[in-house]
């Protein structure tokens, strides 16, 4: 059950990881001024790209992901439903991560902008 749940939520979980990483990294790196803003900008963009890639990979190869998470083969009767929900959620999550990436591309990493 837990594995199936994680499988369905692959996209949103990776989206949440993306937001946690980029918000946590950007706000703390900017607060301490530890790195030049340009580097911070790239550090923010990198997880977006990597995590989007992971979501797309999971959507392209769902069966191995399901087996990896549950230790069982996809149940034939439930599979079409589970797969479509997982793919649709993954698609929306990638879209939301694209929105993050556009922000990271367009805006200076540490500016107050006011």
């Amino acid at each position: 059950m837990i594995g199936t749940l994680i499988f369905i939520l692959t996209g949103p979980i990776l989206w949440a990881a993306d937001l946690t990483i980029i918000y946590g990294a950007q706000s703390s790196l900017c607060a301490f001024g530890a790195l030049p803003p340009q580097i911070v900008g790239w550090l923010v963009l990198a997880p977006c790209v990597i995590l989007m890639g992971l979501v797309l990979l999971a959507l392209a190869k769902p069966s191995p992901v399901f087996r990896g998470l549950t230790g069982a083969s996809p149940p034939p009767e439930q599979w079409p439903f589970l797969l479509s929900i997982t793919r649709l959620l993954g698609g929306i999550s990638v879209l939301a991560m694209v929105y993050f990436s556009i922000a990271a591309l367009l805006l200076p990493a540490c500016g107050q902008l006011r």
Binding site: L19, I22, Y23, Q26, S27, C30, G41, V44, I92, L95, A96, Y99, F100, I102, A103, A104, L106, L107, P108, A109, C110, G111, Q112, L113, R114
Partner: peptide
């Protein structure tokens, strides 16, 4: 509240994303 602009943009982006579903 004075949070840096890019942080605000992340949450603005998420606010836009939630309107899709």
């Amino acid at each position: 509240t004075g949070i840096p602009g890019l942080s605000l943009a992340f949450f603005s982006a998420a606010s836009m994303a939630v309107s899709v579903p």
